[in-house]
Design a binder for these strands. Structure first.
Lengths: 327, 327
DNA sequence: TACCTATGCTAAATCGATTTTGTAAAATTT
DNA sequence: AAATTTTACAAAATCGATTTAGCATAGGTA
């Protein structure tokens, strides 16, 4: 349409006009035609030729979870700013599905991976690295896997909450967590234990509850209820995840306890419910935007092949303690 | 690797071996090599050649909303079953962004669109149809646009809830909605008005509140509070959306009203909070899975070119009334 | 005048598949 | 036995871009 060869158009559109010394006059003519005709390069053809899909794979546990939803949102925005698209996949807490997903994305030729690793995905991630695919982990990581990761400083987050409780004079603080072997949870427990020790408050084993991950919701509720009933001296509870916190709210309502008079409550990881549930549940808020942005940055750094090695492959961002009515 | 031509491999892999009378022996050999070498066709090359990306575009208002998140989840699962991938995009209630998104997906060469239309996207959708792109709308639709859509039966949903309230002897029922011109909301209001009429309960104009869509959250709260205070005779409130319902909970807490003694509450569209917030908020639950499946079916039908026209281009699925403590 | 270099583009190869066309060899028909 | 058809694949064209190599023309140098 512009009366020139396809290659000439390609040069101009890809900003190589100067380098290929295309006359400004011709370049203008091309741009004009492009504008008027609304021409858009065929994505697949570009991908095939360049070997880059300009697409990132985001693998999360569950899209419908609020933490992951927010994460996805920010990542999408950030990726778009840099000219990348995102395809999401959720593992739905199913390790086997995680593997399939990664292979599916591989088939799809994504340029890089952003993964919130679930237990059991370790091997698949290791494979990706062997294929020299750029990977950034979020929210958690595997100590054995040497790839960049970004997460909240779990230890510090718990400490902030614990310090608040202790400052209020509470000392019989329970800690409710899950028996999954995840770095985050271990760190959160470490925060609990360490803060107590720092304040010379004796750590009581019976004040720490490890709920079974694979149990039914109802079973967990009962176990939690029993835990609180059997330890009436407890004046505060720290829930290690928002799922646990929500269970907690239900149990506390069942027992007719008033927050914070009968029991102070702090939960790790915010949730819509915690803002609205009277009297408002105090939480450690994850710096989701920060995590997303840092993760994208790390991934982009790997995608730019001319870049050197990453200077900071492990990023821990501080969480924010949000004081509401419950503590 | 199998000692045959690429075309032969292609025939076998695409199930055209019989048709092209490739010997079983050769086919087996090919499959064997494929298995052992872990060969996967290059997606982009396939797409380029076939013109099909095997990808669907899902455009929703906000990925982080729970309705949309669940929708996305089901759609992803269903699409995967049929060998399709999904790319999501959220308009974040921004009409202009909606247009950009649609164009972006076009560039990406998605085979079809699943859209929850927001006011202002009408023109863009019209354009897609002119380009003969398959489109299915969900949750709402534009009367002027002739493309299949799937949504809950809003009228019937409200009626179910209203019947329950009336059966309990409540007659001073308020209806809180938003002043956005959306089919869903009009239908819900119609459900309210019609049910009252059916029971010969006089419709009072002052019992219907149209909150301004663009107002700040705080302003809406105040307006809602004033509404309830100025109409103390009201014995029940029907909220037309879950966002409104959540505002309602906050106002009711502020006013110190007890549900359902002082005020019965029903809300259209469930939300995590409504399950947990004491005493549990009764809701009309959207048949999200059904909507997602029906929408995918309609889209797939359009993608199979050999299919005739769609027999039922407008699907309305019944909602489910979930009785909790609030009504 | 012959040779070299810079300019400004075009032609052709390439990415990795699918699909149409072609073609030996074997089987069947005339 | 010659002609035709069927079998079983291979060769080549194609999708729509990018990129490398090529090729006239103009200007400058030996």
């Amino acid at each position: 349409m512009a009366g020139v060869a396809p290659s000439t158009v390609s040069f101009v559109l890809n900003g190589k006009g100067k380098q290929m010394r295309i006359r400004d006059e011709v370049a203008r003519k091309i741009m004009q035609v492009v504008e008027k005709s609304g021409y858009e390069p065929h994505r697949m053809a570009v991908n095939l030729r360049t070997g880059q899909s300009k697409t990132l794979g985001l693998i999360v546990e569950s899209i419908s979870g609020s933490f992951f939803a927010s994460l996805a949102k920010t990542i999408e925005t950030e990726a778009e700013r840099r000219g990348y698209n995102v395809v999401y996949c959720s593992t739905e807490n199913n390790a086997q599905k995680g593997g399939e997903l990664i292979r599916m994305l591989g088939r799809q030729m994504v340029d890089g991976y952003l993964i919130t690793p679930a237990p059991g995905m370790e091997k698949e991630i290791q494979q990706l690295l062997q294929q020299h695919k750029p990977v950034v982990l979020m929210d958690s990581y595997f100590p054995a896997i040497k790839t960049p990761y970004v997460l909240i400083n779990n230890f510090d987050g718990v400490q902030q909450g614990m310090e608040h409780l202790i400052k209020k004079g509470l000392t019989k603080i329970a800690f409710v967590t899950v028996d999954v072997k995840l770095i985050q949870l271990e760190e959160r427990l470490r925060g609990y234990v360490t803060t107590l020790k720092d304040h010379r408050i004796p750590l009581k084993k019976k004040h720490v509850l490890h709920l079974k991950y694979h149990k039914q919701r109802e079973d967990s509720l009962n176990e939690l209820q029993e835990f609180i009933e059997k330890n009436p001296e407890i004046d505060a509870v720290f829930f290690a995840t928002n799922y646990l916190g929500i269970l907690g709210l239900e149990v506390i309502a069942r027992l007719g306890l008033k927050m914070p008079q009968d029991l102070s409550v702090i939960c790790f990881d915010d949730h819509d419910i915690f803002r609205l549930y009277p009297p408002g549940i105090s939480v450690i808020e994850q710096p989701i935007e920060g995590i997303a942005k840092a993760a994208i940055d790390l991934l982009m750094h790997q995608l730019d092949k001319n870049n050197g090695p990453i200077k900071k492959p492990a990023i821990q961002l501080p969480g924010r303690f949000i004081l509401r009515g419950s503590a």
